[in-house]
């Protein structure tokens, strides 16, 4: 194990169902790994310190702020981003609900909210309004006041 130079780390990771082999610098965030190395810019940067949730992705089914994960850490793991939500059959119900409920204004927070909300609905198909508000507290939106976002998540839940 060499630790003297900030050498790159070889990782194999599944991103939106697709396997990727990558060489990532040890210090590179998962956010930059996605955006800069793979070109998946749907995951957004808002703060780089875990406070806005714009960079939310799912790692092995748990939502995380990808700015506070190193790319090297996802070796052998499954990463899901907003780009993986829709299928050839169409949008994910959450994406559809966000459109119908006008749950985005500028839209910069939207990928993070969608991935976070999916993390909730995948485990709890019919959360209460309070539960939704609690679950989404790690995602900041400055445009909407959250009202329509919460309604969209309610609409997409069963």
């Amino acid at each position: 194990m060499t630790t003297n130079s900030p050498s790159k780390v070889h990782i194999t990771t599944t991103i939106n169902g697709q396997q990727h082999e990558l060489l990532v610098p040890g210090y590179m965030s998962l956010l930059d790994t996605l955006r800069e190395l793979i070109g998946l810019t749907g995951t957004k940067e808002g703060c780089l310190d875990g406070n806005c949730g714009a960079c939310t992705v799912s790692v092995d089914g748990r939502i995380v702020d990808s700015c506070l994960v190193l790319g090297a850490e996802v070796d052998g793991k499954e990463v899901d981003t907003v780009e993986g939500m829709a299928s050839p059959d169409g949008l994910h119900p959450l994406q559809q609900a966000f459109l119908e409920e006008a749950a985005l204004q500028c839209g910069i927070c939207t990928p993070g909210f969608l991935v976070a909300a999916k993390g909730l609905l995948d485990n709890e198909p019919s959360p209460s309004e309070d539960r939704i508000r609690h679950w989404l507290a790690g995602n900041l939106c400055r445009c909407t006041g959250y009202d329509k976002i919460v309604r969209a998540v309610q609409k997409a839940s069963s």
């Binding site: 998946l40 810019t41 939500m85 949008l91 985005l104 839209g107 910069i108």
Partner: peptide, 20 residues
């Protein structure tokens, strides 16, 4: 439904920080 909505809910929309 807003015209730019599809790009914005799929992560395809290009914001300033996404420029390459």
């Amino acid at each position: 439904i807003r015209h730019d909505g599809y790009d914005k809910v799929t992560g395809r929309a290009i914001y300033g920080g996404d420029m390459k």
